[in-house]
Design a binder for these strands. Sequence first.
RNA 1: GCCCCGGUGGCGGAAUGGCAGACGCAGCGGACUUAAAAUCCGCUGACCGAAAGGUCGUGUGGGUUCGAUCCCCACCCGGGGCACCA
Length: 860
Amino acid sequence: MAANCTDYEPSRIEPLWQKYWADNNTFVAKDFDSTRPKYFAMAMYPYPSGHGLHVGHSENYTATDLLCRYKRARGFNVMQPMGWDAFGLPTEQTAVETGVHPREVTRRNVATFKRQLDAHGFGIDWTREINTTDPQYVRWTQWIFAQLFKHGLAYVDERPVWWCPALGTVLANEEIVDGKSERGSHPVERRALRQWVLRITAYAEKLLERLEGIDWPESTKAKQRNWIGKSEGAEISFAIEGLDESLTVFTTRPDTLYGATYMVVAPEHPLVAKLTSADKKAEVEAYVKAASTKSDMDRTDLAKGEKTGVFSGSYAVNPINGARIPIWIADYVLMGYGTGAIMAVPAHDERDYEFAVKFEIPIIRVIEKLDAEGHEAPLPFCVYGKLVNSGKHTGLSSAEAKKAIVADLETQGIGRLAINYKLRDWLFSRQRYWGEPFPIVWVSEADFAKASGEVKAFLPEAPITFVQDGQVQYALPVPPSQLPLKLPETDNFQPSGNGESALGRCTEWLNIWFNASTGEALPASEPRPEGAEWVRGRRETNTMPQWAGSCWYHLRYVDPNNDKALIDPKLNDYWGSPDYYIGGPEHSVLHLLYAPFWHLFLHDIGAVTVREPYPRLVHQGMVLGENGEKMSKSRGNVINPDAVIKESGADAMRLYLMFMGPLEDDKPWNTKGIEGITRFLRRLWRDIIDAEGRVSAKYSTDANESKAFRKVLNETIKKVSDDCERGRYNTAVSQMMIFMNALAKEEAVRLASIKDFLKLLAPFAPHIAEELWERLGEKPSIVDAGWPTYNEAEMVEDEVMLGILINGKPRSEVRIARDADEATALALAKADEKAQSFIEGKAVRKVVYVPGKIINLVVG
RNA sequence: GCCCCGGUGGCGGAAUGGCAGACGCAGCGGACUUAAAAUCCGCUGACCGAAAGGUCGUGUGGGUUCGAUCCCCACCCGGGGCACCA
């Protein structure tokens, strides 16, 4: 089995062992193994781009692989799966440019990625490989959508989206950088288009709560809390003079209600027209029109400039004091948050203050807080204090007043406590070809009424509709029995240019006879089948965004081939959620919010048995270029893993990636650094294997090892074990280097000692470990050789060097018995010549003795 | 503006209250070699000093402590995120 080489030649050793692992199914995880605890480790799966694997992938997956191999050595039943996040725009773009079908582009890219991953020596269980574009995977992604649809969590809305004329598609917010498309830097504009939206806001509270119990980086939890943006306050209704309607606002400061001197509604607010008086009509309409052409970004940019607004001509009544206050229309109020209307309290809100000053609206102080000199704080004063000018509530604290005022309003039925979230619903459709088709068929109202059977069973309580050319279109679900709904075959993947994807051109697929009971379908070009349940339908032309597949892939790894269910509950119970999930921090508020949303929903409907999808999350840092900058082709500082493996071997690259620094930190690549690692591996090889390729005579069963060497060996076992537990791989590698330095000095070494060391090395550099393991006479594979134990007794020395500190400063040191008592230590310290020169003529006032470390004499 | 993370030799980093700089890289000196590469051995924070040795030193300034890179307060700098969210 072993490679036929006398020198350390990774290019000969590594492919051999990779083949061995593959041939022996070494890394196929066993379901329901009750003899060992399970360990499910997952790294964020890659998007198989045409550029091949990035060295950042190498880092991420090396950390995962090493943890898996370590856990396996520690007796766990380990599962390390891998898959492909293969839908998406770059593949579609390649298809458009080259005319090669995206399926084929994906197949080629996946083949490259797989080859590259295998060349790293990763112990991936390929029997669990998943691909989000595989129809058998798409089937269950669509199944989940059908469930969301059924439970009222998917709806259609016409909303402004980023439209890129050059790309002929809408783009997601995250695909816009500085007002241009991320790909190609094309201009983008706002367009109102019919979109699918998922009601993630229904899960806002659950998504927030779950953050309490999970082991995630604090920074990511903070980002998510910020993104969800919970704020507690009240909803208050204001009567409108001369109108039957009332205007409801959300406020976090009901305690300032007496100070509300005007109101503002967003330009998109539904009451704008009714509020506008005849004499203001022209002015208001012009303002609303101007606001509608502004994007959110323009509005945000304007935040730095002056506020704008226009008086509607209407007045509202402040419910707490009956004051008549004007209603303004201004775009500093956003329709998407709260109720799209506010009560403005200029004395106690910076924005309202700025607006009131500009438009000369009264400013009334209702909160007071005196400073030490008894002076009132200047306006706007935006924190809590004591109420003034507030009728019967004057004198209350802000906290008391909030309760009292809301309670008052509540008895009149015009106020209540309310909670608001910044989180918006999730825009879930894209106008692209290469994505999951929605399992939705649009039909007329009359045909919608014919829904029965399985189709009806998957309808939400309230129908989902939209209006097209004056006709109301009704959404019917393609039920689970008819899934997957496959993409139509075409050779033109370009968006159709009218806001629809390429699917809009695939007429045979698009226009169908749809069975409103079973969900079966036939092209409309064929004769209408017999039976009243057959209706004319048009399929949804949007596809799902790339995030869809990754919302549940952690579940599919557990049960990748199940064609009866998303996941078998028994397997779900056995493997649970990933014990470890690693990926970049860039997904903090995207994938890492979307996936828990889907997972919590699936748990709520009983489709999965485990509540929390990702109990433990780790972010790896970025591998930067040698110049310390982010790697990019334009900077010319890209490190290609293939080239590194060819030059230095996978083992050296793996070790170096782990040695560079803490996993979570960004750190620059250094070509000289990997040479140092290669030197380490070559020294190890040469120490064990002599020039003829045999085990060096230095090694024997019962060699007489020095105490110092025994100490380093035991320390190394302890340190590497602890560091693997803590994820501090850089210091584990350091310790192995320390061991190597000791090994080189030692004249005779026991075989058992070097074998123990190889077990430690194996998770980091598996190929050389296997090779040496076998050459030392063991049977493959070292993967199942277990983990060494250390002996505390061999690590402690009878005598240690004790630091002598005078007034906290290190001045000398003395050799002393490890467990010497304080009196002995003090006597030795006082007798020390160097120490004496600092003590001379002074009294020792205090002694602090830390056995084995320091003795500190306080003199003076 | 708000939130989060960080700041240690020439470089990557180590040390989470006990002798700062482990380990590696780079650099310097030496051995081997006709020579170079490779390999091996030694030195390598700054300053003063011939040396012994001393002084300073973990972004800055305070504080707690016998003792602080580590804990607390204030500030400076860098990175990331959010930002008219009522």
